[in-house]
Nucleic acid binder design. Structure first.
Length: 588
RNA sequence: GCGCCCGUAGCUCAGCGGAUAGAGCAGGGGACUUCUAAUCCCAAGGCCGCAGGUUCGAAUCCUGCCGGGCGCGCCA
C-alpha cells in the first residue's frame, strides 16, 4: 500500500482554524512543561468547545497522576483571549471553552477572506488524476458514475487548495474489439445503423451485433482478427474507420459529462492508443533492467509474495506470447509519461476496487524500473462495485445494464415534478434548469456521500431521494441563507466582537471553522465523503441556528453578527457544494 | 490455497484510540398568521459479526475465527 502524499508542511493557512490555534497554544504549554511527548489531540467535544486528549497517555509515561498532569496543562494555558475557561474532567480529560470574542474574531476573519480562510497547501504540487475511463462503443453505465464523480470532486478540491491538476480520461480506445467492429461495419453497411452522430444508439447496436457474429461465426472472427492486424499496421482505410468510431463515442461521452456538470473535456481524453508507440520501449527497458523476464514466451514481471491458486507465481504480463501488448504495458507507459514528462508529484487512479492487484503490480514494477521515485506517490483510489438488485455485480456484457443517461434522465424528471409542485410559478427553461440542478445534485450526492470502498446496491429510489441526508438538504439550507441575505438587502453585516453569543451561534461558528481542516482530510485520504459529512453537519447546525435565532428581527449588534453568520454559512455551503460538483442555486 | 475489501438500529450508512455509539429512510406522536415545513421537535429502535489480546480507555489498533464480495498467466 502506498502512503498518500502529504503536502509540504509549514505553508501558512490564510486564517488558521481555532482548533489549530488552540493546538499550538497547548503544544507550547506542553513543551514548556517538558512533556513534549504528550502530543495532545485537539478535537471537538460535547462537553466543551474542544477537548485536549493525551494527558492520560502521557501520565503513564511520566509515571504521574493523570489528573495532575492535566491540571498543569490547564494552569499553563496562556491568558491570550482565546481560552475562556479550561478544566479537568473525569480521569484526566481537559475541557476547553473559547471566548465569544475569539469566536467572533474568527468569524470576521474568515468572512473577510474570499477564500473563507482556506489556504493553498497544494501549491506547487502536481497531481495527475485518472478517472472516468469509459469504453469506446459501449454505453456509460452506473459504474462509470462513481469514477467520474469522485474524480471530479477530487480535481475540484485539489485545485481549490492551489494544486496543479492534470486530468486524464484513459478511455478504452484500442484493442481487439475494434477489429470486430470495423469488420462488421465493412460487411454490413446497414443504413438503419447510421445514426445522427450524436448518440450512442448506433455504436451500441453495432457492438452488440458484431459481438454476436464474432461469437457465432469462426470465419468472421478470423476476418476480425485480420482487421486488427490491419489496424495495428496502419492500414489507412481501417485507421480512418477506427478514428470515426472513436470520435463518435467521444462526442457521446462529452455529452454525458456536460449533462453531469463534470469538467472533463475532449482535451482530457488520452486513451490507451496514445501509448502504442511507447510500448516496445517500455518492454525493452524492463527487460534490460532485469525487472521483467521471459516466461512461456511472454514478457513477465514476478513478485515475491504473489502466487496463484496453483502455487505458481503470478506475473504482470507486459508482452504477450504473440508479441502483442496488454493493458499492463499501456498503464506502465502512461505512468512513466506522467512522471517523466508531466512531472507529477502524485498519481491518482480512480478505478474499481477489483483492479487492486493490478495496480499493486504496476506500481511495484514502476518502482523497480525507476520510473516512480519515492518522492512521487501513486494511489489507487479504489471504489466498491455497483451491485444489481440481486446483490450480484453488474455485468457489462450481459445486457440489462442500466444506462447512465437513463438514470440521469429519471433523476431530472423526478426532480422536475417535485420542484414544480413546490414552485407553481416556475416554468419553462427556469424549471428545467432548477430540475437539472436538483436532480443531478441528488445523484451525485448519493454516490459521493458514502465511503468509496464499500460496494453498494444500485437503488434508484435512494439516488433520487429528495428528503433527509441528500444533496437537496444542503441546497435547501443554502437557499434559506440566501433568502435571508436577500431580504436584508445589503444591510450592515459588520461583526461586533463584543457581543454575547447564543449556543446555536457558537456551534455554527465552530462548525464553519472546520472547513479548511476538512478539505485537508479529504485530500489526505482521497475521500470526498468526508466533505459530504461535514456539509451535512454544517447544514444541520445552521438549521438549528435558523430555528432558534431570528436574524432579520434581531436588534442591536446581534443582527449584524447573525447576518455575518448567514453570509459565511452561505458561502461555505456554496463553496463546499461546488467542490463536490453540485450546484447551489439561490432559490429552490 | 493466498491476497484485497466489507460486516454498526428493520433498511441505507456515518463515526476508525477517548466520556452516554450517531444520522437518514421506514413505522408511531406532534409543530406552518413567524427570515422557504424539501424543515423541525418528541418517543421508539444496538451483545458495533464472534473470540482472544494490547491499553487507564477499543466500534476504532493487533491476532484468530465466522459470514459476504472481489481478485490471483497471456481480456481490459
Amino acid at each position: 500500500m502506498t502512503i498518500p502524499f502529504i503536502p509540504s508542511q509549514g505553508v501558512p493557512v490564510t486564517v488558521p482554524s481555532l482548533a489549530s490555534s488552540l493546538s499550538e497554544s497547548v503544544t507550547a504549554v506542553v513543551d514548556r512543561l517538558g512533556m513534549a511527548d504528550l502530543a495532545p489531540q485537539i478535537r471537538r467535544s460535547e462537553h466543551a468547545d474542544f477537548q485536549a486528549d493525551g494527558a492520560l497517555a502521557a501520565a503513564r509515561r511520566l509515571r504521574r497522576n493523570p489528573r495532575e498532569v492535566a491540571a498543569e496543562l490547564v494552569a499553563g494555558l496562556p491568558d491570550d483571549g482565546l481560552v475562556a475557561r479550561a478544566g479537568v474532567a473525569g480521569p484526566g480529560f481537559v475541557n476547553i471553552d473559547l471566548t465569544d470574542r475569539a469566536l467572533l474574531a474568527q468569524l470576521a476573519g474568515r468572512m473577510g477572506d474570499d477564500r473563507l480562510g482556506v489556504g493553498t497547501p497544494e501549491a506547487g504540487v502536481t497531481t495527475v488524476i485518472d478517472y472516468s475511463q469509459p469504453n469506446i462503443a459501449k454505453e456509460m453505465h452506473v459504474g462509470h458514475l462513481r469514477s467520474t464523480i469522485i474524480g471530479d470532486a477530487l480535481v475540484r478540491i485539489l485545485e481549490h487548495l492551489g494544486g496543479t491538476v492534470v486530468r486524464r480520461n484513459h478511455i478504452g480506445d484500442w484493442g481487439t474489439q475494434f477489429g470486430m467492429l470495423i469488420q462488421y461495419q465493412v460487411e454490413h453497411p446497414d443504413p438503419s445503423l447510421s445514426g445522427d452522430g450524436g448518440t450512442m444508439g448506433r455504436l451500441a447496436t453495432l457492438y452488440r451485433r458484431a459481438r454476436a457474429e464474432f461469437d457465432a461465426d469462426p470465419a468472421f472472427a478470423e476476418r476480425a482478427r485480420r482487421r486488427v492486424v490491419a489496424l495495428q499496421a496502419g492500414d489507412p482505410g481501417t485507421v480512418a474507420a477506427w478514428r470515426d468510431i472513436v470520435a463518435e463515442s467521444t462526442r457521446y461521452f462529452t455529452d454525458v459529462y456536460e449533462r453531469l456538470g463534470v469538467r472533463l473535456t475532449d482535451a482530457d481524453v488520452v486513451g490507451e492508443s496514445a501509448y502504442n508507440a511507447a510500448l516496445p520501449e517500455v518492454a525493452d527497458e524492463l527487460e534490460r533492467r532485469a525487472v521483467a523476464v521471459t516466461s512461456d514466451g511472454a514478457l513477465c514481471v514476478f513478485f515475491d509474495d504473489l502466487r496463484g491458486p496453483d502455487g505458481e507465481p503470478t506475473p504482470l504480463i507486459v508482452r504477450k506470447r504473440d508479441g502483442g501488448f496488454g493493458y499492463a504495458a499501456t498503464d506502465l507507459a502512461a505512468l512513466r509519461q506522467r512522471v517523466v514528462e508531466l512531472h507529477a508529484d502524485r498519481l491518482l487512479y480512480v478505478v474499481d476496487a477489483r483492479q487492486a492487484l493490478h495496480f499493486r503490480m504496476v506500481f511495484d514494477t514502476a518502482r523497480r524500473a525507476g520510473w516512480l521515485p519515492s518522492a512521487v506517490s501513486a494511489v489507487h483510489v479504489a471504489f466498491g462495485t455497483v451491485l444489481g438488485p440481486d446483490g450480484r455485480p453488474f455485468k457489462t456484457r450481459a445486457g440489462d445494464t442500466v444506462r447512465l443517461v437513463d438514470l440521469l434522465t429519471e433523476a431530472v424528471d423526478h426532480a422536475r415534478e417535485v420542484v414544480a409542485a413546490r414552485n407553481p410559478g416556475l416554468t419553462g427553461a427556469a424549471l428545467d434548469e432548477r430540475a437539472r440542478q436538483v436532480g443531478i445534485g441528488a445523484v451525485k450526492y448519493a454516490d459521493l456521500a458514502t465511503n468509496r470502498a464499500r460496494d453498494y446496491t444500485y437503488e434508484p429510489r435512494r439516488m433520487l431521494a429528495l428528503a433527509g441526508n441528500t444533496g437537496v438538504y444542503l441546497q435547501y439550507a443554502h437557499a434559506r441563507v440566501r433568502s435571508i441575505l436577500a431580504r436584508a438587502d445589503g444591510a450592515d453585516v459588520t461583526v461586533d466582537p463584543t457581543a454575547a453569543l447564543e449556543p446555536a451561534e457558537r456551534a455554527l461558528i465552530l462548525d464553519l471553522d472546520a472547513f479548511a481542516d476538512t478539505l485537508a482530510e479529504v485530500v489526505a485520504a482521497s475521500e470526498p465523503h468526508r466533505l459530504c459529512g461535514y456539509l451535512y453537519r454544517l447544514a444541520q447546525t445552521f438549521t438549528a441556528f435558523y430555528e432558534h435565532c431570528p436574524v432579520l428581527r434581531a436588534t442591536g449588534s446581534s443582527r449584524g453578527n447573525r447576518l455575518a453568520l448567514c453570509r459565511l454559512t452561505g458561502d461555505t455551503l456554496r463553496t463546499g457544494l461546488h467542490l463536490l460538483g453540485i450546484s447551489a442555486p439561490n432559490h429552490l
